[in-house]
Structure formats: structure tokens, C-alpha cells
């Protein structure tokens, strides 16, 4: 536990070592509010809820989460510090989990900074705060899934830009999985079970069920399992590709 905290603290403060963290947080809050108010027409809908905010989140996360996660392992490789970490008497999975947790906490901070939106809808009307809370939790978990995927891909390269691009591509697949565009491309040749499986991977599908107020434990379980699997894969990748 001490080791976990030591790594977590180092990683979390690494985000604030440059002004980049502040820039990121400002960009995130500006984009998410901007999309809520202007693109989704928050005022025209004349409805006191945050659904216009949550609708855009998966797309925003698709680009912003890889930006947070890309450095996690690629930077260790570039600096050569991976050699240092992997020769300390600490199990590699602890580094994997603690690093991801630091990125997850940073994403949580970014989400927390959008709370003024929540306050605003409460001033304007009386939203279902239970649904909003559930949506925030779902959004955070979805961010965690994007981050776990980013960390995994970051472990494959010493180039942060490549890690970013790879993570956006893989994330895009997960975001698009539920759309008919993808499913209809697969349906003609794939067995039904596979089509179902792909549809079941959809980030937006799972997230929407939470924001629609159908509080489904299965959606949370989905994101949690995906995170666990990606982190497990991250450990395997580190194990197999230490040198390159």
C-alpha cells in the first residue's frame, strides 16, 4: 500500500510538473460546457437536466483521455526510466495499477470541475439528481476505460504521439461499436453471436443506459471489467516487451 501511494503520488504530481495540466483542464471544461450550451442547444430545450452535457462526453473523452494516458509508459521508455522501475523490488502490476489510478484521479478532477453545470441546472429547475450522480459515476468509469486502453497502447512504444494516435483509433472502435454503421458492415458475414458481442462492447450504448436513468449495474460492470482486462494486458505487454 505504501508503494502504491508512492507511485500514485509521483504520477499524479507529474501531471502538474508542466502547465499542460492546467491547459488540459481549461480545455476540457471549456469544450464540455461549450458543447452543452451551444452545440446541443441547452437553452432551447428548456429542460433542466444535463443530458446535453453527457451526450457529448464519449466523443470528448475519445480525444482527451488518450492525451492524459499517452505518457504513462511511452515516457518511461523514452527516458529509459523503465529500466529503473523494472529493477526495483516491486511487482510490475503495482506500477501499472498505480499509474492508471493517477490518470484516473486526474480525469476525476477534470469531471469535478464541471460541477458548476450541475449547480446551474439545479438553479434553473429541478433535475433528477440521482440520475445525474449516476451519470457522473458512469462517465468517470468510462474515462477509466479509455485511460486503461491508452495506458496499454502507451506501453507498446516510446513515442507519445504514436501512443496517442493508437489509443484514439482503438477508442474509436469501442465508441462506434454500437452504431449500425459498424454492425451492418459485420452482419452479412459474421455469426450472430459475434454481432451481439460487438454491440455489447459499445461505450456509448452502456453509457447511454446510465444517463437515461435506467441505472444498470451491468454497464458499470462492463466498464470495470474492461479496465481490469486492459490493465492485465498492460502488464503482459510490459513483460513481453521490456527491451524495445
Amino acid at each position: 500500500m505504501t508503494n502504491f501511494l508512492t507511485i500514485f503520488r509521483r504520477e499524479f504530481s507529474a501531471y502538474f510538473a508542466t502547465p499542460l495540466a492546467a491547459v488540459f483542464l481549461v480545455v476540457f471544461v471549456a469544450l464540455s460546457s461549450g458543447m452543452t450550451f451551444f452545440v446541443s442547444g441547452f437553452f432551447d430545450r428548456a429542460q433542466a437536466d444535463l443530458s446535453s452535457f453527457f451526450t457529448w462526453l464519449p466523443w470528448l473523452f475519445l480525444v482527451l483521455m488518450p492525451a492524459i494516458g499517452m505518457r504513462l509508459w511511452a515516457e518511461e521508455r523514452r527516458l529509459g526510466t523503465i529500466e529503473l522501475l523494472m529493477t526495483l523490488p516491486v511487482q510490475p502490476w503495482l506500477f501499472v495499477v498505480a499509474k492508471w489510478a493517477a490518470a484516473f484521479a486526474f480525469a476525476g478532477l477534470a469531471l469535478a470541475l464541471t460541477m458548476p453545470l450541475w449547480v446551474t441546472v439545479n438553479v434553473l429547475g429541478s433535475p433528477d439528481n440521482g440520475v445525474i450522480l449516476a451519470s457522473y459515476i458512469g462517465a468517470w468509469l468510462m474515462a477509466g476505460a479509455f485511460l486503461a486502453i491508452s495506458a496499454c497502447i502507451s506501453a507498446l512504444t516510446k513515442n507519445q504521439v504514436l501512443a496517442f494516435i493508437g489509443a484514439v483509433i482503438v477508442g474509436f472502435i469501442f465508441v462506434m461499436a454500437g452504431f449500425d454503421l459498424v454492425l451492418s458492415a459485420v452482419r452479412p458475414w459474421a455469426p450472430d453471436a459475434l454481432v451481439q458481442a460487438i454491440a455489447a462492447m459499445s461505450f456509448i450504448g452502456h453509457f447511454q443506459r446510465i444517463t437515461d436513468g435506467v441505472f444498470e449495474a451491468s454497464a458499470l460492470v462492463f466498464f470495470a471489467s474492461l479496465i481490469s482486462f486492459a490493465l492485465w494486458l498492460n502488464v503482459q505487454i510490459l513483460d513481453a516487451r521490456k527491451a524495445s
Binding site: R10, T18, L84, T87
Partner: peptide, 15 residues
Amino acid sequence: HLGYLPEGAPAYPDM
């Protein structure tokens, strides 16, 4: 039991 200095003495520049 081991102390190891890798080639090039890698370290975190921001620390």
C-alpha cells in the same frame, strides 16, 4: 540485493 545504474543514468527530469 542489487543496486543498478543503467547506461545513461536515466531519471525523471521533472523531479
